[in-house]
Computed example of a mutant assay.
Amino acid sequence: MDNLLFGLEELGITKTNGVDIFGEEKGDSRLKTKIEESTVSEQKESDFLFEKTMTCPVCDKSFKTKQVKIGKPRFIGTDSDLRPRYEGVDTVKYDAVVCLHCGYAELMRNFNSISSRQIKDVKENICNTFKGITNELGEYSYPAALQRYKLALYNGVVKHSKLSERAFICLKIAWLYRAQIESLSKDTEDYAKVAREYAINELMFTKNAYEGFFKAIEKEMPPICGMDETTVNYMLSDLARRCQDYENAEKFAFAVLSSRSASAKIKEKTRAELEIIKKEKASSNK
């Protein structure tokens, strides 16, 4: 699938086919993924949400967006690529904020960080054709969350945001596709076909996240997307493994283990990661 931003056409965003997310040629990495069991909770996801009123820095209009109540959900851990897991709610779904009026979209932490030049680019390339988006009742469905993230990614391309910021959005989109697989009912018609499609999309965005972060560390200084150098190296080790780039997976892992500032906890996780890398590398050479 060549168009990473498929699904935005119904919002009036039609110039997405062939968009190069990072503005350079991409490699042809093969990827692997792991489907993990989802957490079941008796509470409804909507119980963890509230409506936050925001003002758009592009069009100056107010709108409401769903956010997760701070301290409400119980943290239960992360996947190997740092995807967070909470009991009862997928917090990732609610980090992409979209102005319902003009189509400006960004991750919550960066929403108000936009220059006058970037505002001009967004108005010219997005606002002029944006048809509007609905703030769903209750929790966001995965298709709705993915649409918001892809709009945020396209905004990032249009306003030339940092490589790391675009890469982080790609990574979060990959997490959403993984979660969509986990939440898919086995009774779904053509279950295997649908699950495979989601898995392919997860792999595609994982690949782009790895590419973006790999390029970003050559041009940006830590912290990168709020992560220190050690955390970035650990994450890149896991993403490289998923891309079957085992040489760089080992290199990033060794960078963590040799770091004097790395905690004992992250070094322990990295040693476990190295064991997985070695097994997968040996398996791929058979």
Rank of each mutant, 00 (worst) to 15 (best):
K207P: 01
Y154M: 05
L171H: 04
K186Y: 08
E189N: 11
L203N: 11
A216I: 10
E197A: 14
P222E: 07
T188P: 01
S161C: 11
A195P: 08
F168E: 15
A199R: 14
V157K: 11
N155L: 00
A152I: 01
E189I: 10
I200R: 10
A174K: 07
L184C: 03
K162N: 10
Y198T: 09
E165Y: 11
I181H: 11
G156A: 04
M221W: 09
A152H: 06
F168R: 13
K207C: 00
E197M: 12
E182Q: 15
L171K: 11
N208T: 05
L176T: 02
F205I: 02
I200K: 13
V157E: 06
K172F: 06
S164T: 12
E220L: 08
L171N: 07
E182F: 00
S161T: 15
D187E: 12
A152N: 05
T206V: 05
K193T: 09
R166N: 11
E165K: 14
E189S: 11
K172L: 04
R178W: 05
G212Y: 15
H160P: 00
F205R: 09
Y154C: 03
L176W: 02
M204F: 01
Y191R: 14
P222K: 08
I217T: 12
I217D: 05
C170M: 09
A167K: 15
S183F: 01
A179R: 15
A179G: 15
H160I: 00
A216G: 14
N155S: 09
G156Y: 07
S183A: 12
R196K: 12
E182V: 01
I200H: 05
A216Y: 13
E202C: 04
A209D: 01
K159P: 00
Y198N: 13
D187V: 04
D190M: 08
A167H: 15
L151W: 10
A209C: 01
P222F: 08
E211A: 12
K186G: 02
M204Y: 01
Q180W: 02
K172H: 11
R166Y: 02
K186H: 06
W175V: 01
D190V: 03
F205A: 03
L176M: 04
D190S: 10
F214K: 15
M221S: 15
T206S: 12
A192P: 00
L151D: 05
I173Y: 04
N155A: 02
R166V: 00
S164F: 13
Y177K: 13
E189K: 15
E197V: 05
R196H: 07
G212I: 10
E182W: 01
H160W: 01
A174F: 06
G156R: 09
G156T: 02
Y191K: 12
L163E: 07
A199H: 09
L163V: 03
T188N: 04
C170N: 14
I173L: 01
Y191S: 08
K186M: 05
F168G: 06
E218Y: 14
L163I: 04
